[in-house]
């Protein structure tokens, strides 16, 4: 994985793709661990009877877990304090057994009020290529980067 120490403003290029992150195969245990941490205990993500009664084939992944994996990964990649904005859309559900790939593309590089800002395009894909999450982020490269 790319570390913050590897990211130098001068070396960031528009069009650059970062090393993707792999996550999975997803388990219901992964969902419950996130649910307990976040306080969202909706049984549709872990109770097969509840999920099937609601019309689904079974429990499906908590979108906010994958949003969280993405956010935590971005912060660990660009600097823990660097994420200024994260804007995500949940597209297709993810399911137990899925293997997800988190992709980051640099789409902009700008300076604003003395800050070095980087615009990112994000996608979390299922193994068949369907998008689970799409979105954007704004990164402010701060002094901790490169320490």
């Amino acid at each position: 994985m790319t570390t913050a120490a590897n990211i130098d403003w001068n070396l960031v290029e528009v069009g650059q793709q970062l090393e993707p992150l792999a996550d999975g195969p997803l388990t219901i245990n992964d969902f419950v661990r996130y649910q307990a941490a976040s306080g969202d205990m909706n049984p549709i993500h872990h109770d097969p009877d509840f999920a099937t009664a609601a019309g689904f084939s079974g429990p499906f992944a908590v979108g906010m877990r994958q949003a969280g994996v993405l956010g935590t990964h971005l912060a660990e990649t660009w600097g823990l304090t660097s994420v200024r904005e994260l804007d995500l859309r949940f597209r297709n559900q993810a399911w137990p057994g899925d293997v997800l790939t988190y992709r980051t593309l640099v789409v902009g590089k700008r300076e604003d009020d003395g800050q070095h800002l980087i615009d990112l395009e994000l996608v979390v894909e299922r193994q068949d290529g369907t998008p689970h999450i799409t979105g954007t982020a704004v990164i402010a490269l701060t002094q901790e980067v490169g320490r």
């Binding site: 909706n42 509840f50 009664a53 609601a54 019309g55 906010m64 949003a67 995500l88 949940f90």
Partner: peptide
Amino acid sequence: PARLLHAGQRY
């Protein structure tokens, strides 16, 4: 909870 889905999230 059986009908409510999360469509988007922004911080």
